[in-house]
Design a protein around this nucleic acid. Sequence first.
DNA 1: CATACCATGTAAGCGGTTACATGATTTT
DNA 2: AAAATCATGTAACCGCTTACATGGTATG
Lengths: 173, 173
Amino acid sequence: MLKYLILGLLEGRSRHGYELRQAITERFQGTWSINAGQIYTTLDRLERDGLIDREIVRTDLAPDRRVCSITEGGRAELKRWLVDPVDPPVRLKDELFAKALVHRTTGEGRTGEFIARQRDACLQALASLTRARRDRTLEPTTRLLLDGAVLRLEADLKWLDLWEASDRKEAGG
Amino acid sequence: MLKYLILGLLEGRSRHGYELRQAITERFQGTWSINAGQIYTTLDRLERDGLIDREIVRTDLAPDRRVCSITEGGRAELKRWLVDPVDPPVRLKDELFAKALVHRTTGEGRTGEFIARQRDACLQALASLTRARRDRTLEPTTRLLLDGAVLRLEADLKWLDLWEASDRKEAGG
DNA sequence: CATACCATGTAAGCGGTTACATGATTTT
DNA sequence: AAAATCATGTAACCGCTTACATGGTATG
């Protein structure tokens, strides 16, 4: 994923590693602050695969930079990724679902406690997203992402209700 | 995640690697058919960390097995995981969101095509889930997971509509 | 002068994927 | 006799995380 975010940024203009890292961290509102190391290993692979070029640029003031630019191959790969739908569109292999599975199969008794805590976590996240959304200066794209997160949280909250109802039905006969 | 699925299965009774693999593949309706190799490397780590014990059992008929059983430490770790809410409850760092980000920042023009294809993929997945749900013999836990997947797909479909509307607004002024 | 920031990297490890290897037993 | 299934593993790689190392330059 990082690979394509990088290609997407380079499609606009050439950038060096540190700059890429800042741009991505900013775009994810700090919810994904990439480790410096990963940028450079990813750039190594991108260069190896011919999707970017790198060139060392000496500067008088700042430390030397390795400026990256996208190649024709990189552009093609990015275009392909941009029209390809996410596959699969939804995964059963998910940590929340996995916890439900294990709760159900071990029948361990603290399921109610888990559901309550998970619901709390969702509601808290929802509140902080709602707060963030109120900012009038928010970029439309950022707002769109926040809306997506809200919709998914609401879906999971509904599902926690379903789970509880299903548990009561199992227990109550 | 696999680690905890394994511990969850072993909490019930001891099992060997091949058996664990089958059980997990079955529980995820074949949507996650784990590679054989990963089971054994995960079991290696679990043993190293003292969460399981392994013992070679000779059989006359079948090939030898390495039967795994959960330890006290494993039980404790499993219990901890089972009550801990998923953190974070929702991620902005997600492939669908990433594609939206890159579409918006590159302004590459084929966004409509992507949204249409993504919507198709979601609707198709939704249809197949609905079909699977009609099975009367379905285990309640499997049905619960399918319901979760449905809710998330519906959320994403709503979001694709939002995205389209937001694009029109940007373009139309 | 300290410390924050700019900029690049290495190393070790986790969780996962794909592919391959080995050998036995059961089914067709 | 051939193919499927049982059962265990190794090797190489991807994407990512945490932690650490190395220097320069700008700011307080």
